[in-house]
Amino acid sequence: MEYKLNSLIQRIEDMKRIGEAIAQEYKEIPAVDRNIKRILASLRILELDVSDLKMIQD
């Protein structure tokens, strides 16, 4: 089994973008705001690492 790293990076970035958009649009609703932000916080660990790797590759 092999992983395509570029595709992983792309999809995590997509998730992050969607998450940020939801958090922004529904920031009046604490349950949406905080839960989406928690997802983004966990995603941050992956996002930083894989995009770092991408920059090394470039």
């Binding site: 089994m1 992983y3 790293l5 570029n6 590759q57």
Partner: peptide, 9 residues
């Protein structure tokens, strides 16, 4: 390139 494709687990 090891950062492009990672051998599986």
């Amino acid at each position: 390139n090891p950062t492009e494709e990672v051998q599986g687990m």
